[in-house]
Structure formats: C-alpha cells, structure tokens
Amino acid sequence: MSHKVKARNNGGSAVGIESRGEIAFDIVVAIIGVLLILVCVYPIYYVVIASISRPLYVENGEVMFRPIMANLESYKEALKTPYLWASFGNSLFYTLFGVLVNMAFSTTMAYALSRPRLIFRKFFTLLAVFTMWFSAGIIPLYMTFRDFGLLDSRAAILFGFCINTYNMIILKSFFEQVPSSLEEAAFIDGASDFRIFTQIYLPLSKPALATVGLFYAVTRWNGYFWPMNLLTSDSKVPLQVLLKKLLVDRTANEMESAIITAESLSSQTTVIYALIILAIIPMIIVYPFIQKYFKSGLTIGANKG
C-alpha cells in the first residue's frame, strides 16, 4: 500500500506510461503553481519589504519590488511595544490549551453524533447545526459571561469557545466514514463506547484530528474580538489584541502623529507590517509539521440518505 500512496503523491500517474499529454498537463499544472505562488507571495513579500523600507516611500507607493533604504528600525520599534512578550506568551497559552479544550469537547460530541445508535441523534445534530446560522450576538453573549462570573478570566477564553460547529461536523463526518465493522468487532469483544472511542477511533483519525486541530489553532491564534472585550487585565491579553490596537490606532491617531519625511526610519504603518511578520512566524513554523498528516487522508462527507 505504501508505495502506491507514494506514487500518488508524486502526481497521480503511477507507473511510467507518460504520454505527451501527461507531460503537457504536468507543465501546465506547474505553471499554474508558480503563478499561484506569485499571487500569494507578492502581498506578503510586499509586507516584508515595506516593513524594512523608509516609511515615506511606502506611503507614496514607491516601494514595490524591492525595499528602499532598508533598515530594521521598524522591527526594533515593534519589539518595544508594551506587553509584547507577555501577549506573545498568552497567545501561545490560549492556542495550546485552547486547542486541547476544543479537541476534547469536539471529538467526544462528534463521535457521539456519528453513531446511528444514539438516541435523538437528529435532534442533537440539528441543535448543533442550527447555531451556525442563528447566533445571539455580542451583547447577549457578553451578558452570559458576566452571569457566569467569567469576565476577565482566562477560563472564559478557553471554555467560552469550546466547539466550532463547522469543525465538529468535519470530525463527525470523518468518524462516520470509518468502517462500522471495526466497531462491531470491538463490541463483540465487550469493549465499552469509551474504549472504542479512545482506542480505535481516535488513533485512526489522526489526519482529521490534525486538520481540525490546525483549524482550531488558527482560530485561536487569530482571535481578537472576545479576548479584547472579556479581558481587562493587561497581563492576560493575547498578541492579536495588541496588533488590532495598533491597526486601529493608525486610523485614529494619525491626525496627531509625527510628520513623515524622507528621513523617517519607521512609522506606525511599517511597525505594523513588522508586527504582522512577527505574528505569522509561529504558524509558518508549525504548518509543515501538520501538513504531513494530510497524506493519510480525510474525507468529510454527508449522511447517506
């Protein structure tokens, strides 16, 4: 099996029967790939070169393909942002433990909902799915946090957002794809649902867990709205809240900020660009490790019938 998988990873044509059409196809795909890279990389490349260029040239649109009068002043300024390291640590904390909480709640519920035996299964599924289209809005949710005494607590961030229905459905669909013969066999051996879940289904679901885990991690890492409004202590705030503040500041405070001339080394804009780069780095480091789990496959599908 494994060599077949490998062959498939090498591009879909297994053995060496290469027609001209096949080669042309590969070349076209490769060209599309390169174009895609350009389209996606350019804006990011732009952020990088803008973050090291002199701000006046960034503002007047001269920075396009290469940095102008490169300097690292913006990074130095970015690193001086108050609470930067604390918030970086907080972001790591919320992402790491948040994903654990997410996975604990989502996998159990998804597994239960994936079993046709479950009583009121349709009702419970609908209950979850319904929230994707109907949500209460900001103020009622805030009042809920208040009533539970969760304002300004890390617990609010970790447990207030246990399940993303979308991700839970992905997991549920995956569990549904696992051949039921495995479950039946385990039942005959007298295994409980808990054991089947933890010892058969979870180990089998690594790709799904990796994908959904990644989704959760991204959401956790990028989230700013609720952390900003629920947390009032500066020591608990994550990185994105800081970043957001700088971004919004840019529009609000620019009326009174310093004048930019050709001599200025950094401006709020370039500092923001520097911070964006700093904030993306952890995700770029983590992503390739998760990518390898995709190889073994994941199918989310819908209920048959």
């Binding site: 409004n229 009032t232 957001k244 919004v248």
Partner: peptide, 16 residues
C-alpha cells in the same frame, strides 16, 4: 481603568 490598555474599540467597550 476597567478596560485593558489594549482595548481598541471604545463604542463596543462602552456598550458592553
């Protein structure tokens, strides 16, 4: 202050 130094939306914070 009852809001954190990182707060960047006065309107929302006020209403909340």
């Amino acid at each position: 202050s009852v809001i954190s130094q990182s707060n960047s939306n006065e309107d929302e914070a006020y209403n909340l």
